[in-house]
Simulated assay, not measured.
Amino acid sequence: MTDKTPEIRRLNDAFRRSFIGGHVVLTSGVAALADTERRALLRSVRAFEAFNSGNDPHAEHDFGAIDLEGSKFFWKIDYYDAEMRGGSPDPTNAELTRRALTIMRAEEY
């Protein structure tokens, strides 16, 4: 954990809960779900709070695993530079960072 971790966590939580302030990417497996299943999954991602040292070792709230109706899904937040060509030089700086939240079936990982 660094001195920037609390701010990274705050920004990740705000983005994940609202889907505002970054890009949300659904894999083909998630896009193929029925509308009701896909909406339930998106609600589950937004509401996710089951962070622990196993799924959040850096305390940034950037990954989660969800079981939904017998299927397992993962979501992951990555930090890119403003042009989305490489990693962000500072994930706490919104002008330098573009967040991408990818939601996938576990088998697509």
Rank of each mutant, 00 (worst) to 15 (best):
R43A: 13
A50W: 03
D81Y: 14
D62P: 01
D35F: 11
E7M: 10
M84C: 11
D78Q: 05
G87F: 09
F48H: 05
H61W: 00
A14M: 08
K72M: 06
R39G: 04
R85S: 04
I20T: 15
F19R: 12
A50M: 10
G22S: 05
G29M: 05
V25Q: 04
N52Y: 14
V25G: 01
E83P: 01
K4F: 15
K72H: 11
A50N: 15
D35N: 14
E60M: 12
D78Y: 05
V24R: 04
K76P: 06
R46N: 04
A31Q: 15
G86D: 05
T2L: 12
Y109S: 06
T27H: 08
L42M: 13
F19M: 07
L68D: 06
A40S: 14
I8L: 07
D56V: 02
P6C: 09
T2C: 03
R98C: 04
L96A: 11
W75D: 01
R43F: 12
Y80F: 14
K72V: 09
F73E: 01
A31Y: 08
F19Y: 15
Y80G: 01
A31H: 08
T27R: 06
N93M: 07
N93V: 12
L96W: 13
F48P: 01
D90I: 03
D13K: 10
E95P: 00
Y79N: 02
T92Q: 10
A32S: 10
H23A: 08
G29Y: 10
R99I: 13
A50L: 12
E107H: 11
R99A: 03
A106F: 15
S88T: 11
D56F: 10
E49V: 02
I66A: 02
I66V: 07
A50Q: 15
L33Q: 07
F15R: 04
G21P: 01
I103T: 01
R39K: 14
E37F: 03
L33F: 11
F51H: 02
A34R: 05
E69P: 02
Y79W: 08
A59R: 12
P57N: 05
A100H: 04
M1V: 15
T5D: 00
S18A: 12
E60T: 15
I103G: 00
E108H: 10
T102V: 12
R16K: 13
H23K: 15
G70H: 07
R39V: 09
P89A: 11
A65C: 07
G21A: 12
Y80T: 00
G64Q: 02
L41G: 10
